[in-house]
Write a protein that binds this DNA or RNA. Sequence first.
DNA 1: GCGATCAGAT
DNA 2: CACATCTGATCGC
Length: 460
Amino acid sequence: MPSGTPFNSFALPYRIRVDNFTSITDDNAAALHLLTHTHSDHIVGLSAQSFGYKVVCSKDAKEMLLRHEVYAERELLQLQLRSQKTRTYSHLKVDPIRASDGNLYHFGSRDLLETLPMHTPKEYELSDGECVTITLLDANHCPGAVMFLIEGSQGAVLHTGDFRAEPWFLESLTRNPILQPYLAPRTSGGSRTSNCNIVKTLEAIYLDTANVLSTLSVPTKEKATSGLVILMRMFADAVYFFINSWTWGYEDVLKAISREFSCPIHVDRYKYSVYQHTSDPFLRSIITQDPSSTRFHACERFHRCEYVAVDDEPGQSQYNPISHLGKRVVYINPVNMGSQSWDLYVKDTQARLSRGEEIHNLLVPLSRHSPLNELRDFVALFQPHRVIPNTLDPRLHGFDWAAIDRMFADCLNPDLGTRGVILPGPQLDIDNFVDEDLAGEDVTLRNLVGEGAADAAERW
DNA sequence: GCGATCAGAT
DNA sequence: CACATCTGATCGC
C-alpha cells in the first residue's frame, strides 16, 4: 500500500498485514500476509528476493502476479535482446526440479502464494495460536481484486482493498449470506446489542479512500461504457480505435466495445498471457493477438502495433491521426469525470460528430475507485464501529484521517460504547487545526487537495 | 556493489 | 488525462 497507511498496513486488531510486504522488525512481524490485488502500489516489498512468507490472495491475483513483467523487460524481449521472459515475482513460486534421472528435487522449491476461492470462508491460525476466518469477496476494481472479511475472537473487520461500490455492487452485498449478519438494520438508530448475537457489527471497515475527497457523483461503469460505444458508433467503419487501458481495471471498456461491435480486441503478448489466465471466460474470449483481425486495439501503449501507431501523442497541436498503415485512429482515454459532465460531454460530442467535425480522441469516465457519496452508502450499509482509511497523504499529518472520521460519523453504529476502544484513532485535533500545523512547510490543505475537496473536508 | 526503498514526474 | 507506473536518486547491508 502507498506510504501513509495507518497502523503500518496491519488490519488491527489482528496481526494481519494487507498489501504491504516491506520488511519490519521481528517482534512486530505479521502473523499472516494478505494481498488484495496486483497493482504496483499494493505489492510493495514482494519483489524482494528475501521475502519468504505465505501470502493469501485470489487465484486470479496469483496468476497475474506470477506473470508480471515490467515494461522495460517486455520491450527487451520483443526486440530479442532477451531470450526469455523476466517475471518480477517468479521467486514466489519455485517448482521442484526434474533431474535427468527422472527424480523430483525439492531443494529451494516453494509456493508462497496461497489462493482462496471466492465466498469460501477458511480458518487460519495466527502465530499466537489465535484463529481467524478469512473470506474473499469480489472488489469490482480489476481482475483478481478482492475484499477480505476477517472474523475472529476480537471481532470482524472488512478490508475493501481498492474497490468501486456502485449501486449494483451494494445490492449484491446485501444478498450475500456471508455478509448478511453484518448488515445494519433497515431502521437506523435501533440498538443492535439486544439481539441474540444473530446480527453482528463490524469492528472496522478498512476503506479505499483514494477518492474520498471527491464530492462528485461519478457515472456507473455501465453508463460510462454505454455512452462511449454510442459515440464510437458515430465514426466511419474505416476508423481504428486505440484504447489506452494503461493499467488493470479497464476491462469493462474492452468488453463493452467487443460486445457492441461483435469484434475482438487486439492486445499485446503480455496482456494476452495475463488475461488468458484469469477466471473471466468472456474476457478470455474477446482478446486476440492478431492485429489485422480488428479495428479495436489495446496493445502496448508505448509500442502500439502499426495499425494504430501514430507519430505524435494526441493533444499536441500538430497531431496527425493517420497510423503507419494509413488508418485513421481515434484514441480512447479513461478519465475521472462527474456524471453531469459526462452527460454534457456525450451530448456535445454527438453534436460535433453529427456536424461532421473531426474528433481524434474520446474520453470514458470509468472510475475504479468510489467517490465520497458511494463510500458513505457502502459504510451505511454496515454501520461498523469504525472506518479506517486505507491510504493517507503523509503531508497532511493526519488531517485527512480526522476529516474522514467526521465524514462517516453518521454512517457508523449509533452505539458509541465500543468506538475507538480497540483501534487508535486520528492523531490530530481537527477543531483546533490550522494549516500552519502542517510542519510549517509551504504546504496547505488547499493547495494539496484542491479547493473543492478542502471545502468538503471542512464542511464535516 | 548490489538490491531495496523513496521521491518526483507523467 | 491517470493515484498506477516508471525512472533515477538515495539508503543500507
